[in-house]
């Protein structure tokens, strides 16, 4: 399928953002976060939203993740109009459709990693047996199956992020959202984590990544460049997914920013 055809099938989009804007007050200062963003993301994509800090990419991420609401514009996820949802329905969307991964991991420090991965399923009203089984499965998948009784502070940064990824996958979400997932990791762990994302994406998981680091963004198959609250460019890479090998188009854009 040619690139153009791919873009044309908007009706198959999982996420449709239309004219999304958000401003917010930071004390006395009014900050314009994003201006009239429109974006479609299909199922199975690996989208990297890249831009310098303050460009609004995190704000957009939070809106996609239903942690924040836009001031104007519409957001449709899996056919659901998000802004029309009640509080309880939003809770359910966060629980079932979205898996969030944070730069600072955001695990519960006083619980075992098994408990941490169970947490979304607790709110999803899974039975204890189901939860524990699935949590074990997911931790096996990310390579930490033998350390389920450990607490997060007993693990390295890379390991913690892997727990976070396992947790994010717990409810089999429609999208994985990762906000600077490698920001607190050393180069080797960062590479590990990104490989994990690639692997999950190959297995069919839709991944949306936000980062300021071009090399991290490169793991994605589609790079959306953000600047001053706007999309500067939106480019699909060629099918060559190897790290370090980039299409000419994207390299050109990187040199611009």
């Amino acid at each position: 399928m040619k690139d153009d055809d791919f873009y044309e099938s908007v009706s198959e989009a999982m996420i449709t953002l239309t004219d999304i804007s958000k401003l917010y007050q930071n004390g006395a200062v009014e900050v314009t976060a994003i201006k009239q963003i429109s974006l479609n993301i299909k199922k199975g994509e690996f989208v990297s939203i890249m831009g310098p800090s303050g460009s609004g990419k995190s704000t957009l991420m939070n809106i996609i993740g239903c942690l924040d609401t836009q001031d104007s514009g519409s957001y449709e996820l899996d056919g659901i109009q998000i802004e029309s949802l009640q509080e309880k329905e939003l809770d359910r969307v966060r629980n079932q459709k979205i898996g969030f991964i944070f730069q600072s991991f955001n695990l519960l420090p006083k619980q075992t990693i098994l408990r941490n991965v169970e947490l979304p399923m607790i709110y999803g009203l899974y039975s204890r047996k189901e939860r524990v089984e699935r949590a074990q499965l997911l931790l096996d998948k990310v390579g930490l199956g033998d350390r389920i009784k450990n607490r997060p502070n007993e693990l390295s940064g890379g390991q913690r992020q892997r727990v976070a990824i396992a947790r994010a996958l717990a409810m089999n979400p429609s999208i994985l959202l990762a906000d600077e997932p490698t920001g607190n990791l050393d180069t080797a762990s960062a590479a590990d984590i990104m490989h994990l994302f690639s692997q999950l994406n190959e297995e069919g998981t839709t991944v949306i990544l936000v980062t300021h680091d071009p090399q991290i963004a490169d793991y994605g198959t589609r790079i959306v460049l953000f600047g001053d609250g706007e999309i500067r460019s939106d480019v699909r890479k060629t099918h060559d997914r190897n790290v370090g090998e980039t299409s000419g188009l994207t390299r050109e854009f990187w040199h611009r920013t």
Partner: peptide, 10 residues
């Protein structure tokens, strides 16, 4: 915040 992000309700 973490719990709410994971889907905990009011």
């Amino acid at each position: 915040g973490i719990r709410k992000a994971l889907g905990a309700s009011y």
